[in-house]
Design a protein around this nucleic acid. Sequence first.
DNA 1: GAAAGCGCGCAAAGCGTTTTGCAATCGTCG
DNA 2: CGACGATTGCAAAACGCTTTGCGCGCTTTC
Lengths: 339, 339
Amino acid sequence: MTEPNGKPWTMQQIADAAGVSVTTVSHTISGKRPVSPQTAQRIKGLIDEFGYVPDAGARRLQSGRSRMIGLAVPDISNWFFGRIARGVEEMANELDYGLIVCSTANSDPRREQRYFNMIRTRLIDGLIYTAGRQMPQTNELQKVAASAPVVLADEGIDSFASIPWVTSANLDGARQLARHVRELGHTRAVVIAGFAGLNSTIERVAGIRESFPNALVLYGDFDIDAGYDSIDDLLANDVSFTAVFGGNDLIAVGAIKRLREQGLTVPADVTVVGFDDIDIASVITPGLTTVRQDASGLGRNSARLLIEGLEAGSFEAVASVVLPVELIVRGTSAAPPTA
Amino acid sequence: MTEPNGKPWTMQQIADAAGVSVTTVSHTISGKRPVSPQTAQRIKGLIDEFGYVPDAGARRLQSGRSRMIGLAVPDISNWFFGRIARGVEEMANELDYGLIVCSTANSDPRREQRYFNMIRTRLIDGLIYTAGRQMPQTNELQKVAASAPVVLADEGIDSFASIPWVTSANLDGARQLARHVRELGHTRAVVIAGFAGLNSTIERVAGIRESFPNALVLYGDFDIDAGYDSIDDLLANDVSFTAVFGGNDLIAVGAIKRLREQGLTVPADVTVVGFDDIDIASVITPGLTTVRQDASGLGRNSARLLIEGLEAGSFEAVASVVLPVELIVRGTSAAPPTA
DNA sequence: GAAAGCGCGCAAAGCGTTTTGCAATCGTCG
DNA sequence: CGACGATTGCAAAACGCTTTGCGCGCTTTC
């Protein structure tokens, strides 16, 4: 069919063309009541021919459900969150849900409120939330969670058992990583940890401290600059160390960059390790020793949990998920200088 | 106010609480007709107190506009597209529009159709489209563009003057880059170009050929593997070259990796340059010589164009935009070996 | 052969907004 | 002092869809 008169086709028009009522068309589409084969055939033909697509708003208004979920991430241009988004997107697609991605610009409260409101405007049926700088005004989050399903991805939160979450085995990963560094012979390590308030940070630091109880811990941002600047601080204060644990790979990369500029060699002089295994990690020379998180899996599982709960109409039976991680040893870790 | 009975508040409930009709409430919110200060005050108070948010679907159903735009990108976990998304998101936010990001998984047609349908379901008022592998079934795109506003970001398309676009000055960037390499003394260069069908690829190759008319051009993917594998092919066939132009930075990075593994030094033996200036470019050692695109600006301008057209109700006056680029010289380009 | 079942289609009632067309109240002016 | 704008509030009609309650005609069953 050619285009309508500028406006999209309505179900009524399809019904008219087929010589039936809208009810019949609706039931043909939804299958909620039997329709005679010939009629169904004819209607489907018309729908294809016209290129008819039901109005999402009207549908939702009536049915109460939009088959859309939201994903809030601190920064969509960050590879790690991008990967999570991709996982969510894939799973949502498989389960026939649409996705709205929201970048909260590192927990800018105004933005965040805006996205929380999306739930309340009934634009989306549920939300997957990944914490940025810190777990937000938890009361805000909890309020939202009270009115609609929320799943936490990447960052757990203990205080509200009612909100299911999906995280990586941060403690285990950090433990393995630290053990690896310890076994290389290092005894003096520093940790450039990232945001202090996050659960994952706490777990990672704890895991490292099992092998390096006295490691100096610096908190800060989760980006390249944080790694870069922290090295400056450490050197300026004559801190002596042979190993650096980055709170994530970006921090590690920043640290490496600065160490090199200061004339130190990685890993001959200093071992540097990260966390996440982002794409950069395998590309730099030498490759970064790190712990691989299944970012895509975090996304996929979060989406699965959320949609399962949505379909079940309750989150009673929904259990949180912890994904395994994997130690990836590359070239930035080696025995400490024998001097 | 405490939560409603599980369901969100309706405008009617606010009206009842305020002792007025829904009309008055609606007008208080929209400001489309005067409301007495006291009444307005009271209603606004109630709205805040209740935490009332209008139902987006109902609103759209009535008004015909959703104040939402869509962004279709090939792969959201790609830094470059993530950056574009961020730009779009920022501008949309400034103009008080919501954003739905759609990852089309490298132009998977099924996915793409799904997102095109979003426009037709009236979920979004317009679409920003960034091409992946190739410009899609242009008729499909054109069909969509006929029923709702579309702006092309990053990739222009000449054939349809009706669709405005925002791109970088690819030709100019490539020209500058090639001239730089030429001036270093190189005479034998190869181009690992990326997808052949894209406008940007064509322009970049053209720009390079101005300085290297006989450069061998290899087409392929836009990722690290493409750069990596192409180097293998080149070496296996005894192609002699002292400079490699990557179609983008990922290709360049892959090429560098493989060259190193083959015992060649960058830039002493081979000069390698990229395009885009993604975050990795400045982090690897040595830094990658490349052309900086304003990815965020691509996003911002696309959103501006789209929303301006939306508000104006027409795209007659909307002009396409070409953003300037900047040559960034770092460490991977140097004079060819004197041997 | 009449009663009961069943398959299939229709009319109509919402869903929560926005947006008319009116009506009521008030102040003001001739 | 009556009438006429200006102000402000109300009732009601869409918007496009889903879903319920009916009813029609046909097949079964005793």
